[in-house]
Simulated assay, not measured.
Amino acid sequence: MIQFKKTSIGIALCVMTAMPATAAQTIKAVVIDGYPEKSMWVHEFSNFFIPEVEKRLASTGNYEMQWQESYGGSIVKPKGVLEGVKLGLGDIGIVTTIFHSSKLPSQALAAVTPFISDDARVVAKAVDEIAKEFPTMQKEFAKQKQVYLATGVVLNTYQLYSKKQVNRAADLEGSKVAGAGMNLRYIEGIDGAAGVRGGLTDFYNMLSTGLVDHAMLWPEAAKTFKIAEVGPYMLETDFGAVNSKTVTVNSSFWKKLPDEVKDVLQEVALEYRDHVANIAMERAAESRDAYVAAGGTIVEMSAEDKKQWADSMPNIALEWAQTLDKAGEPGSEMLKAYIAKLEAAGAVPTRDWTAGL
């Protein structure tokens, strides 16, 4: 009897050992961005976000992701990510929010407050906190059938790149300036200056063909897209860092995800936010040096000329806040809270954008 029990236990142990462990559930996800993989934020999504998600899911072994990464126009163009995620062409997207001022007006918060901070880390954190503390930003994405995960700040500051040297705002009179959204309003106080909307991938050709005389972009992008060849003068305007990317998830896809996967995506999105902002800051000086090495000339702009430029602009921050207020959203409170966060981090506004509230 004793021998029988030993044999039975031995057989049972052998059977248990032979049984395969429960297989992890595979979740397929299509990630889209219209920009090419060489773009810093896309590259870091592939090399930081995705590996981090996989590592954390592997720690429990319950789920694994099967990714389809579709960048550079393979599914959508740069301006088509918001619509692509809404339609389910992508499950996760990196939305360039500056293209969608009418659908995502609250995302322009940093763009309507130039000349305050060129620290991508501070701006990214402040905007993301505003998105969590006020419902407005998340509600706007919900209307587009998307769940907001985190803000992305991929530039330390917009600068002005030109075919001929300029030193101040007045030197832009009668010229054409390329921009990608709200920053086109920065030239509204300059006589005869006309803004021309374009995307980052368009700026090289716009300058080389003479469609525009100047373009507003940031040093890391200028290096990546070889802007020194067509815009050999950079005016150090220091317009500041802006949030221009948001990681979102299709709402229907999100609802089907297990809570464990949702938690991991949200955690990693915040780390991706800070990771990308840190890279933007690290590459800023290097990119300036690369621009000069490629034949570019950097022109310093005085503090007085920066203030004169800021004061010449319409108060676009006030307009932004009041427009949201009229729509029933706390625009004025968001604006004051955001600037307070920047000031608490050490930023000193060149102009008081809250004047009149």
Score class of each variant (00 low, 15 high):
Ile98Gly: 04
Gly84Glu: 04
His43Gln: 14
Thr151Gln: 10
Ile2Thr: 09
Lys6Gln: 11
Ser70Asn: 14
Ala178Gln: 07
Glu54Lys: 13
Gly152Met: 03
Glu54Asp: 15
Lys6Ile: 11
Lys38Glu: 09
Val292Cys: 05
Pro349Lys: 04
Gly356Gln: 08
Val15Ser: 05
Lys38Cys: 02
Ile298Ser: 04
Ala284Cys: 10
Tyr186Asn: 10
Asp289Gln: 15
Tyr204Leu: 06
Asp289Lys: 15
Val122Phe: 02
Tyr204Cys: 04
Pro36Ser: 10
Phe134Leu: 04
Glu271Met: 11
Pro78Asn: 05
Gln25Cys: 02
Lys341Met: 12
Pro20Asp: 02
Glu333Tyr: 07
Met206Tyr: 12
Leu82Gly: 06
Ala24Tyr: 06
Leu155Ile: 11
Glu69Gly: 04
Gly199Pro: 01
Thr97Asn: 09
Ala355Glu: 09
Pro78Leu: 04
Asn156Met: 09
Val166Lys: 00
Leu342Pro: 06
Leu155Asn: 12
Ala222Trp: 02
Gly192Met: 08
Val196Leu: 09
Val268His: 01
Val299Asp: 03
Val268Asn: 00
Thr354Lys: 03
Gly296Val: 08
Glu37Val: 14
Ile316Asn: 11
Tyr63Ser: 07
Glu329His: 10
Ile98Lys: 08
Gly346Lys: 09
Glu236Gly: 01
Ser74Ile: 01
Ile339Glu: 05
Gln3Ala: 15
Tyr35Val: 00
Lys164Ala: 12
Leu211Arg: 15
Gly181Pro: 02
Gln25Ile: 08
Ser251Asn: 11
Leu270Ile: 12
Met234Asn: 04
Val85Gly: 05
Ile75Gln: 02
Leu265Arg: 00
Ala228Trp: 02
Trp67Val: 04
Val95Asp: 06
Ser162Glu: 03
Ala150Ile: 08
Asp33Pro: 01
Ala280Gly: 07
Ala124Asn: 11
Leu211Glu: 14
Ala280Glu: 11
Ala222Gln: 08
Asn62Phe: 06
Ile116Pro: 00
Asn167Gly: 03
Val112Gln: 05
Ile316Glu: 12
Ile32Phe: 10
Met137Phe: 05
Ile130Asn: 01
Thr26Asp: 10
Asp202Gly: 10
Met182Trp: 14
Ala108Pro: 00
Thr60Asp: 11
Gln3Met: 12
Val230Cys: 00
Ile27Glu: 05
Met206Gln: 08
Leu207Asp: 03
Tyr63Pro: 06
Met301Lys: 01
Lys55Met: 06
Gly198Gln: 07
Val242Asn: 10
Asn278Val: 10
Asp274Phe: 06
Ala241Ile: 00
Asn205Ala: 12
Ser252Arg: 14
Lys255Gly: 15
